[in-house]
């Protein structure tokens, strides 16, 4: 296993330092030896990871390596079979803490019969938003994901990318402190991807913690830190620069391949 696993992100930026960390400086996410198995198959093996508040953390790894499982473990949707996970200072699973978390699943979980607005209204109510504030938030997230003109269409008439954007809008609706986004930009065109990334960076600038999974290397490059996951193990954690230097590779992609070889040997 790579020895840089214990490294913490030193690439802190000014925005993070200014962010309200309510004095306690508790990490946003803290995993201690967390494992997850289905039956006799172990999907996540002894993961330890700390994500600081205000950090933009990317999870990178081949298909089936356990990224989605890890995200679900952090939300508490999947219980850890061993070890423990702490989310915003609360040990998961914890129902209340979910009010501060915006979750975007890998598969769009939307009500196809309802319109975009109705989907948002429903989730807004679940997060306790009502009245003028609900209205204002719905307008704001619709504009953000560029769906305002399609708001009255049923979701069944949306394209794949539109559904993805609506899912993102749902995750942002209640202004969560922490965002858990499972492949948020899949199926979204380059221009919109840029604007979504601009928004994610702006959110990070406001002190919001973001954890996302991705298969896109240039997205990984924009994260403060990335975690490389392979066969359910975190094989490396560090800022993009650190990973490149450590492996002597020119790109994250190469670094990833070099590190992957390391574990197979």
């Amino acid at each position: 296993m790579a020895d840089n696993e214990q490294q913490r992100g030193q690439a802190s930026n000014a925005a993070v330092d200014e962010a309200p960390v309510n004095g306690l400086k508790l990490p946003a996410i803290d995993l201690k030896g967390a494992s997850r198995s289905y039956g006799s198959r172990t999907i996540l093996k002894d993961l330890s990871l700390t994500v600081e508040r205000g950090e933009l953390f990317g999870l990178l790894g081949p298909s089936g390596s356990g990224k989605t499982t890890l995200i679900k473990l952090i939300t508490g949707l999947e219980a850890a079979s061993a070890g423990e996970a702490t989310l915003l200072g609360k040990r998961v699973p914890n129902r209340q803490v979910l009010a501060k978390v915006g979750y975007m699943a890998q598969a769009d979980a939307l009500y196809n019969e309802l319109t975009g607005t109705q989907n948002l209204e429903f989730f807004a109510a679940l997060y306790g938003l009502s009245g003028a504030r609900r209205q204002e938030r719905i307008e704001s997230v619709l504009a953000l994901v560029d769906l305002t003109e399609h708001r009255s269409k049923p979701v069944s008439a949306y394209s794949g990318g539109m559904k993805r954007r609506l899912s993102l809008a749902v995750a942002l609706l209640h202004e969560p402190e922490l965002l858990l986004l499972d492949e948020p930009t899949v199926g979204i065109d380059p221009a919109l991807r840029q604007s979504i990334w601009a928004e994610l960076l702006a959110l990070r600038g406001r002190g919001i913690t973001i954890v996302l999974t991705t298969h896109v290397m240039d997205e990984a490059d924009r994260c403060d830190r990335i975690g490389l996951i392979r066969d359910g193990r975190l094989i490396a954690i560090g800022s993009p620069d650190e990973l490149r230097t450590a492996t002597g590779a020119a790109t994250i992609e190469e670094a990833f391949i070099v590190l992957g070889r390391g574990t197979e040997a």
Partner: peptide
Amino acid sequence: TTGTLERLMATPIR
């Protein structure tokens, strides 16, 4: 099957 129940469970609903 559409995953909306799981999505519901990721909100603070009881």
